[in-house]
Every structure is written in C-alpha cells, then in structure tokens.
Design a protein around this nucleic acid. Structure first.
Lengths: 158, 158
DNA sequence: TACGAAAATGGAAGAATCTTCCAGTTCGGC
DNA sequence: GCCGAACTGGAAGATTCTTCCATTTTCGTA
C-alpha cells in the first residue's frame, strides 16, 4: 500500500504540496522562503514531486461564466445492462463529450454520475436530447440543475 | 448578461486561457511563443486576465491517493425544511467540512449534492455518522461510493 | 559507540526569464 | 484625412532558474 505519513515524503514535501495547491505559480524562490529551505533544495524537492506523480499537473482555473459556461448540471445515468462491454462503451463515449467535466462509476441508484457545464438551460436541453440519451446503453437519466454553487473544487484536506 | 464571444477578450486571450488551463506553470516566454505575441504583450494580457477575474487562480493538482485520500464519495442530502435559514445554516456548516470538496444546491430529488474525499470506506463511515448527519437540518442522506473515476475535473470546453 | 557510504543540503554563478519603459503602429471616431 | 486612445514589440536592469560542488546529515553495520 501507498501511504500517508511515513515513507514517501516528509513535512517539507507536504508544505510544498500545500503551497502549490493554493498558488500554483509561486516562484521557486518564494516557495523556498515559505518552506524554509534553500532555493536549490526546494527546486529539487518540487521537481521530484512532479516526476514521481504526487503533483499531476498545474492548471489555471477559469471563471466558467466568463467563457460562456454559466450553467452547471449534475446527471445520474442508468444503463440498460450491467455488462463490462456496456460500461466500456459508455465510458469511451462519455470521454469524448467535452461538456462532461466529471464522470464517476458509482454504487447506488445510478450507474454513473456526471458533472456537466454548458452555457444555459437551453444548451443543456440540446445536449441532453442529442448527446446524453444517445450515449451507448443509456436507459434513463436524472437531471439535477445546480441552482447555487456553494463550494467548488475545494483543496484536498491533507 | 455577460457574454461569450465579442466584447471582453479576443482570440489571443482565449489562447492564453487555454494554454494556462492546461499548463499553469508555463513561463511567460513560452506562453508568448505559443500564442504568437511578444513577451511584453503576453505578460500584459495574462496580467489582465488575472486582474479582471477571468483566471480565478492557478493550482497544483495533487494525486489524492498519494496524500491518503483514495476514496471518493458522492452524497445526496435532503433537508428537513425548505426555509432560507435552514439552507443558510447548512451551507455555513458544510463550508467548514474540509472533506467536502464540492457542495451544490440542486433542483430534483435532493437539496444538495456533495463530493467528498476521505481515506477509505471506514473513514467515510465515521464522517457520515459523526459529521454529515449532524449537519443542521439534515433529514436524510443518500450515499454513492465511487468505484471508478472515469473523468475527473476535465478542462472547460471553450 | 564509532565508522563509512549514501543521501541530502546550501552557496555560488552562468543562463534564462521577468517586468517595465518607451517609441512606433494600429484602430476607430469625427 | 486627422487625432487620440489603445495596443504592440524591442531593450535592459532586476529577478529567478538551474546546475555544480563542497559540506553536512542520515543510517546501516561492525
């Protein structure tokens, strides 16, 4: 098992991860100052965190409304059959739908839960009618329009 | 209404947004090369996108499993009453729960949909029993354990 | 406890980048 | 066609990156 407290990284690494999770564009010099190590050490540590996959990427967060994606919708999906081929086909197709930001296979009343961003309700309606219900193996969907985003993509609690 | 294509930014800004959404730590020089403008212009443009709120932040993405947060759970919540005070109290309390990464007020069978990260099922069980059902006004919850993350936090399609 | 090898650290310095100033250019309104 | 506002790229001092290297720390072994 991969772990939590002992083996892979120490308190300094945790500080680096926390700092970069909050401010991904920190300069190495500033980061080094915050975690109390030299710039050289900080640079090596950070590089290692990237190379070993602890940091999977650094991304700018764009205000959705600013790029015409003001509407957020969650959709529960139930498939026709529960065969591996059925799930595989669905997943492959959903990966191509760029409006779908999240897609998770879940246990419960649905097979999948999707998180979708579109311009507005009209846009979602079109997406639903033309793309979602046409995804392979979809039996039914349940739509949850988001009326208020209380918390969005919060930082990991470590 | 705030719009989509004309007023606020042009094709160069869109290129910058796309590039930084994919690679938030691009240097200004590299970014300038990719969008075909001088470093000075690119620097000004990028600064403006930050200042005017098109870019809300830049964050490193940490591999959840690497920091002991291997389990993802979605939870639907139904409140006792549908009064503004009730919603307000719930939201205020949920903002303090660091395990809750997303919280959205939705229309449909639930009042809220939560996205939660914890170490494992045992950890979730504890969170559920001690914190979630104790949130103000919660009548019932429905839990969806995520068995497979097909797509997670994809880039905005603009 | 003492020893030695391996790993990690910080200083230093050339290379690269940032950030600002400035003069030239483009664009739109009159 | 003219003027002003907005935008552009070059240049250059200040800052930062990235690597090398000598020193220190860590850890297993005797």
């Amino acid at each position: 098992m991969e772990e939590s407290s002992s083996s892979a990284f120490d308190r300094i690494d945790v500080k680096i991860l926390r700092a970069l999770q909050a401010e991904g564009r920190l300069t190495n010099a500033e980061l080094a100052a915050r975690v109390n190590v030299s710039a050289a050490t900080c640079h090596r540590r950070t590089q290692r965190l990237f190379e070993e996959g602890y940091i999977t990427g650094v991304r700018a967060e764009i205000a959705p409304a600013a790029v015409g994606l003001g509407a957020l919708v969650m959709v529960g999906v139930v498939l026709d059959r529960s065969t591996p081929e059925s799930f595989g086909a669905f997943e492959e197709a959903v990966l191509k739908l760029k409006e779908v930001l999240d897609c998770n296979l879940v246990a419960g009343d649905f097979d999948y839960l999707l998180k979708i961003r579109v311009r507005d309700m009209a846009d979602f309606n079109k997406l639903h009618g033309q793309k979602l219900i046409a995804l392979p193996g979809v039996r039914q969907t349940r739509t949850f329009f988001v009326m208020k985003e209380v918390k969005e993509n919060a930082r990991l609690p470590f």
